[in-house]
């Protein structure tokens, strides 16, 4: 049973002449780490809004096709019901945190699930430990750094024990070290909990190493879908995806006539290939 399964999913916002998303069919298996990318307006946000019922509950328009999350058809489900299956983390953690202490914030969602308080407390403790913020429980969110705030936002989602987590550019407000750090936390949770991860991201340099799959959307449709090595090619470049800089460098070298077979997506892969040539 796939974690997410879309069949011919289309959506047109009220007042729009053309669909923002058209005939999207895809299936994401449990435990996958998928990057969803594409130019602004490609439909990726629309797709994510369907996953937790924001479309059509909060954004009106015409939906067509089917979407199953955790084998539950989202049609007619409330965002609250769907949040048991799928958790969301947004760009700016400040928008997700509002309590007086980190612990209260992490507990907010899970306490609304109506589970026994003892279990709720256990889950909060576990979520804070899993994201490495157990020492911050008494702090006020505004006392935290951006990276710590984003960890708290992830912990709040994690405590609800969703089987899928969707992160919408979760590092864009963070400095590069905190960004790498957060991506590391996400990858660890994906590995250890088999948490299906859908990461919406433009900055492919820092996230590609962790993903088993990249889906590129363009003009409302799925344009490319495969491993990062397979997807980061000429078509992705034409669509206007910001490929990792080492991938771009190898593309330039191939254009210069070097018969390079590999398509590196990380610095390590690129440096290993170049070192073999320079050392021979």
């Amino acid at each position: 049973m796939p974690a997410i399964s879309a069949r011919n999913l289309s959506f047109t916002y009220v007042g729009a002449n053309t669909p923002s998303m058209e005939n999207v069919s895809l299936s994401i298996e449990k435990g996958e780490f998928v990057i969803l990318t594409g130019p602004s307006g490609c439909g990726k946000t629309t797709f994510c809004r369907c996953l937790n019922g924001l479309i059509p509950n909060f954004y009106s328009g015409e939906v067509r096709g089917d979407l199953l999350v955790d084998d539950v058809n989202v049609n007619g489900k409330s965002t609250a019901e769907l949040s048991k299956h799928i958790g969301f983390v947004f760009q700016n953690p400040e928008n997700q945190l509002f309590s007086l202490s980190v612990e209260r914030d992490v507990a907010f969602g899970v306490e609304n699930l109506g589970i026994p308080q003892e279990e709720a407390l256990e889950r909060v403790k576990w979520a804070m430990k899993s994201t490495g913020i157990e020492n911050l429980r008494e702090k006020a969110p505004y006392e935290l750094s951006g990276g710590q705030q984003q960890r708290a936002a992830i912990a709040g989602v994690l405590a609800m024990k969703p089987s899928i987590i969707v992160l919408d550019e979760p590092t864009s407000f963070l400095d590069p070290r905190s960004a790498e750090d957060i991506v590391g936390v996400i990858a660890k949770l994906n590995q250890e909990l088999q948490l299906t991860t859908l990461l919406v991201e433009h900055r492919l340099d820092i996230v590609s190493r962790y993903a088993n799959r990249v889906i590129v959307m363009d003009k409302g449709k799925v344009a490319l879908d495969g491993s990062p090595q397979a997807v980061y090619g000429d078509q992705a470049r034409l669509i206007g995806i910001g490929l990792p800089k080492v991938t771009t460098l190898f593309h330039l070298l191939r254009r210069d006539g070097f018969p390079i077979a590999t398509n590196p997506i990380t610095v390590e892969q690129a440096s290993s290939e170049l070192r073999k040539v320079l050392h021979q």
Binding site: D175, P176, R177, S178, E180, D205, P244, K245, V246, L249, V267, E268, A270, S271, L274, R275, L278, H279
Partner: peptide, 18 residues
């Protein structure tokens, strides 16, 4: 000190034996 990282290409060049 400034919580930044090398850009990818700078890191690559750093790793090469040149």
């Amino acid at each position: 000190q400034a919580s930044l990282v090398r850009p990818q290409i700078a890191e690559l060049m750093h790793q090469l034996p040149i």
